[in-house]
């Protein structure tokens, strides 16, 4: 049986009060720009309306936060998930050029919509233009910002709303959401979808003593710029990585910290585990998909490595120009999970 909210994320629309995000605003001209430059991405040029998906690292190149940043006139808005570190304090410790940092936690609240028809519900509130909003783009909404982002593999929107307007917006979404069978999706449901769709979870696999190399996040790092952790990352690149994050499908529940064995030898550790899927840090020699014969202890649970993402998300088959939730039964969705023992 699916947990509450899972059906909505996979087939309709789900709403989440996203308290797991930390939001802050950087302003102060060049200082704000210089401060943003401790993000790891190579391409830091941001137009109004564009969203950058990046990382904050510590000095040893371990992830502190999974970060969206958007430009708002002369300031930058950062919306981040962290592994527990006080990001506002961290930002203030590393501020450059006299930039001003406003913590938005007291003044703003994040509400998230996820699901193959999330675009349609949001469009009911803000107008049909939302349909054409590309992934990693943003627009102003009710004195805050809406980001088309999401980490569930489905259409996703994170609304950073002033607290004095958030309740009204949420009420409208819930009212209009009735015809979408809107459900609340807790963080645990979103995290299961992240696992199935190979979205980095900084609170789980990101909390280990690992860097973007083991996490397969090198695409989010630059080799041509200086940022916190860059020197450490560059030094590590002189040697081959020892382990790499690998997706496993176990035949029974496994847990973070469990040992992964192959042909009797210890080859890794479970880094994150969910329903029917797990991520393991596996020695690079065996960090490949389609290996049968892994065993996860205790219990020697059989597991097979696979190629992520696991889900054939409904959003891949929904065309906002043609489809709607009301006529969803006419869309020939393939099975959500193909070729896996689920």
């Amino acid at each position: 049986m699916q947990p509450d909210g899972m059906r909505a994320v996979r087939e309709g629309v789900a709403i989440t009060r996203a308290d797991h995000f930390t939001a802050l605003r950087l302003s102060g001209g060049d200082g704000a720009w210089e401060t943003v430059s401790w993000l790891t991405s190579g391409e830091l040029f941001l137009r109004d309306g564009q969203v950058l998906h990046s990382l904050w690292l510590d000095e040893r190149a371990r992830p502190l936060a999974d970060v969206y940043v958007l430009r708002d006139d002369e300031s930058f808005v950062v919306v981040a998930e962290s592994r527990g570190k006080d990001l506002v304090a961290h930002a203030r410790q590393n501020v450059r050029g006299g930039a001003v940092i406003d913590a938005l936690g007291e003044t703003h609240r994040v509400v998230s919509l996820n699901g193959p028809f999330a675009w349609e519900l949001l469009g009911d509130i803000v107008g049909p233009d939302v349909v054409s909003l590309p992934y990693m783009a943003s627009f102003r909404i009710e004195g805050g910002w809406a980001l088309r982002a999401g980490k569930t593999g489905e259409y996703g929107y994170d609304l950073v709303l002033p607290v004095d307007r958030a309740d009204a917006v949420e009420a409208r979404l819930r009212e209009r959401g009735v015809r979408f069978d809107l459900e609340d999706a807790p963080l645990a449901v979103l995290e299961q979808c992240m696992l199935e769709n190979w979205f980095f979870n900084v609170r789980r696999e990101g909390s280990l003593d690992v860097t973007p190399r083991e996490l397969q996040l090198q695409w989010r790092t630059s080799r041509g710029r200086e940022y916190l952790g860059a020197a450490s990352l560059e030094a590590q690149r002189k040697e081959d990585p020892r382990q790499r994050l690998t997706t496993l499908v176990p035949s029974a529940p496994v847990h973070a910290g469990d040992e992964v064995r192959l042909w009797g030898e210890a080859v890794g550790t479970i880094a994150n585990a969910g329903d029917g899927v797990a991520l393991a840090l596996v020695d690079v020699a065996w960090a490949h998909p389609w290996i049968d014969g892994f065993a996860v202890s205790p219990g020697r649970t059989p597991a097979r490595s696979v190629t992520p993402p696991l889900a054939n998300n409904h959003s891949l088959h929904v065309n906002p120009q043609q489809h709607s939730y009301a006529t969803r039964d006419e869309i020939p969705f393939p099975p959500l999970f193909t070729g896996l023992a689920r």
Binding site: L52, Y135, M136, W198, Q216, L217, Q218, W219, L245
Partner: peptide
């Protein structure tokens, strides 16, 4: 514009990925 060993096997190709 990446060295081969910087292109991780499971890195997304489109959008924010490569």
């Amino acid at each position: 514009r990446r060295a081969p060993d910087e292109i991780d096997p499971d890195a997304p190709l489109f959008g924010t990925g490569l």
